[in-house]
Computed example of a mutant assay.
Amino acid sequence: MPKRPTDVWREHLAEEAAAVAAGTLAPEDAYSGALFPVALLTATDDVLAAFETDVAALGASPADDDVLGVVERVVLELNRVHEAHDEAAYETEERELLCAYIDDSLVAAGVDVAALTERQGLGRHEITDRWRDW
């Protein structure tokens, strides 16, 4: 499985905390804690864990509808997390990481995402678009 976006966000938090502790970053300039509160990280991890389970259950040569069902579920759950955080959970960089993670996870499981999206009349990176609010 590819690296979760939440792992990347936790790394940002740790780097920022280290910089504050070292005195190379003023505490008032530390913003990652506001962007990535524990509740957001936990909720997102829960959604991604369920997604990983769903992807693993797809098996070899899954039907397009099965793959799209997995994508729909993860996107709708991420929508709920986003809404629960005043629709400010995922900004541009976070959205890009989440979409790349979904795509990379499917590819790692053997899904030919490019072929699937082509069969669905979608662009290569549009697999989440029909359900995504974030």
Rank of each mutant, 00 (worst) to 15 (best):
A60P: 02
G23W: 03
A18R: 12
W131S: 03
G69T: 00
V74N: 00
T44C: 04
V70R: 00
V67N: 01
L13E: 08
L58E: 05
V113F: 06
G121R: 03
A30C: 06
E94M: 15
I127F: 12
A18G: 03
V38D: 14
A17V: 02
D103W: 15
R132H: 06
L76E: 12
A100Y: 13
A30T: 07
E72R: 12
R124I: 10
A19T: 07
H82V: 07
C99H: 15
L48P: 00
A30M: 09
D86A: 13
E91Y: 14
E16Y: 08
T24H: 03
L68V: 06
A34N: 11
P27K: 07
S105C: 15
E93I: 10
V47N: 01
E91H: 13
G23M: 03
E118H: 09
D66L: 00
T128R: 03
D65V: 01
A49Q: 05
A14T: 14
V20P: 04
A63Q: 07
A60Q: 05
R130G: 02
S105F: 08
L25Q: 07
R80A: 15
A18W: 03
L106N: 10
D112A: 09
V74M: 00
I102H: 09
E15K: 14
D29Q: 13
A60Y: 00
V111T: 08
A49F: 01
A43N: 05
A108Q: 13
D66N: 00
W131T: 08
A18D: 13
I102P: 05
V70A: 04
A21S: 10
I127C: 03
T24E: 07
T24Y: 04
L40P: 04
E11Q: 15
L40C: 06
A109I: 10
D66Q: 02
R119T: 09
R124A: 12
T117Y: 05
L40Q: 09
F51L: 04
V111Y: 06
L122D: 05
D46A: 09
A49Y: 01
P37M: 11
G121W: 07
H125A: 11
A19H: 04
D112I: 10
L76Y: 05
A21M: 06
T117M: 10
G59M: 02
E93A: 15
L48W: 01
A39D: 14
V71Q: 02
G110V: 01
V113Q: 06
E28N: 10
E28R: 12
L98C: 14
V81C: 08
V107S: 07
A88P: 06
R132K: 14
A109Q: 10
S61A: 14
E126H: 12
L58H: 01
D104G: 08
D104F: 11
V67I: 07
L68M: 11
A114L: 14
A56K: 02
V38A: 14
A108H: 13
R80L: 12
V47S: 02
P37K: 10
G110P: 09
A39H: 09
C99E: 15
E83F: 11
A57W: 01
D104C: 09
R124C: 04
E77G: 04
S61L: 04
V113S: 10
L97F: 15
D65G: 00
A57V: 04
T42D: 13
V71H: 04
L106Q: 06
A109N: 15
L41G: 08
A50P: 00
H12A: 12
G59E: 03
D86N: 13
A30K: 08
E15W: 03
A56F: 00
D54K: 02
L40M: 11
G33L: 08
R124L: 09
L116W: 07
A88D: 14
